[in-house]
């Protein structure tokens, strides 16, 4: 009976272990490659360079666990940054209020998308694809062809200089976010509901969960967090243009998927996402220090994304023996394939 226990849990574990191994290999590779790798500044840089993406990745993990997807995050990041910039540039709104307004606008953007998706039943892939185009347009409307800078010093320093020791504010935000996200996803009712909704939204509704409300709120949070990340990005860059953060969505989604969150919802863990973030960041950093072309880096991450699932499948097949023979067909590999190849519904 030993084999009978907990495929879900052990699969997550197994995935995390696999990621951890990849991470260790990456780190060893980096240490061997570059003498500059093991420096405190490099470690901070490594986070700082992508901190906005990985903050958004935390909330994206929730969205994907829920069986949805949000392609519009990068555009909403742009909106957040541009709102702050424009309010600073052409109004006398206090800067902190401007930040709050930007986050609010992001939240509203997410709310709108969540409403379209959850209430009207338009797949989130489609809604947020429209959002990807439309909100980028909004960002462009706001700043047009300008490059807006000259932010208050304290704001620039949020993204550029250390708050606690050498750690910049945004990196601290990330660690708080991932810790908080991990606890919420793994240890609270909110997280439990996310898994259940992602596994089977109808069933969740039949269990008294307000699925529509949950999803609308989740998209609103996703929008607000994205906008806030955009604001942090503005702080790091010190100036804002209409194209700020464009194209980030695929990187963000890649990190979450590599983290073992199933695109069909219902599985995954924040630990996995965290490990995958570390892998991607370290890999990019190490390859960058080894003067490997950005294109090649992207290609290598593509290979790792595919290879890691191949490995997982190889293990899963090796392990099917442990499944109860009477298990419902969704454990049968033959069927799993085609359920799991579904695009986000």
């Amino acid at each position: 009976m030993t084999g009978r226990a907990r495929p879900v849990i052990s699969e997550n574990r197994r995935w995390e272990l696999l990621l951890l191994t990849i991470l260790v290999v990456t780190v060893i590779f980096n240490v061997m490659q570059s003498t500059n790798y093991l420096g405190i500044n490099n470690f901070i840089n490594l986070f700082e360079l992508s901190v906005e993406k990985i903050i958004v990745a935390v909330v994206m993990a929730f969205v994907i666990v829920c069986g949805e997807i949000d392609l519009s995050v990068a555009s909403i990041m742009g909106v957040g940054a541009c709102v702050v910039a424009v309010l600073h540039d052409s109004t006398s709104v206090p800067f902190t209020l401007a930040i709050l307004i930007a986050v609010g606008v992001g939240g509203l953007a997410g709310l709108l998308q969540g409403w379209c998706s959850a209430t009207l039943g338009v797949p989130s892939l489609v809604v947020t694809l429209a959002g990807l185009i439309g909100f980028r347009g909004l960002a462009r409307i706001l700043v047009e062809d300008r490059s807006i800078g000259d932010f208050p010093e304290w704001f620039d320093s949020l993204g550029q200089s250390g708050v606690i020791g050498p750690l910049p504010f945004s990196v601290i935000v990330f660690f708080v976010a991932i810790l908080f996200g991990g606890v919420v996803l793994g240890r609270t009712g909110l997280g439990r509901r996310a898994y259940v909704i992602g596994d089977n939204a109808e069933m969740a509704r039949y269990s008294g969960i307000d699925v529509v409300g949950y999803k609308i709120r989740l998209f609103a949070v996703s929008g607000a967090v994205a906008a806030f990340a955009g604001v942090l990005f503005a702080a790091r860059l010190g100036s804002v243009r209409g194209d700020v953060a464009s194209g980030f969505e695929l990187d963000i989604i890649t990190m979450v998927l590599l983290g073992g969150v199933s695109i069909f919802g219902g599985t995954g863990s924040m630990l996995g996402v965290f490990t995958s973030i570390l892998i991607v960041l370290n890999l990019r950093n190490g390859l960058g220090l080894a003067n490997v072309e950005a294109n090649t880096q992207t290609g290598i991450i593509g290979v790792i994304l595919i290879a890691s699932v191949v490995l997982r499948n190889a293990f899963a097949r090796f392990d099917t023996s442990s499944l109860d023979t009477q298990a419902p067909p969704h454990h049968e590999p033959a069927v799993t394939n085609h359920d799991l190849t579904t695009a986000n519904p």
């Binding site: 500059n36 500044n41 700082e48 790091r236 860059l237 010190g238 100036s239 960058g288």
Partner: peptide, 28 residues
């Protein structure tokens, strides 16, 4: 571009020659 400039600082190169596409955003 920002990433490469930042890594260059880590690597301790002598010089970086930039065709800047990032506007003022590359300043930090």
């Amino acid at each position: 571009q920002i990433e490469i400039v930042t890594n260059a600082a880590t690597q301790g190169v002598d010089a970086v020659m930039i065709s800047n596409n990032a506007g003022d955003q590359i300043e930090p």
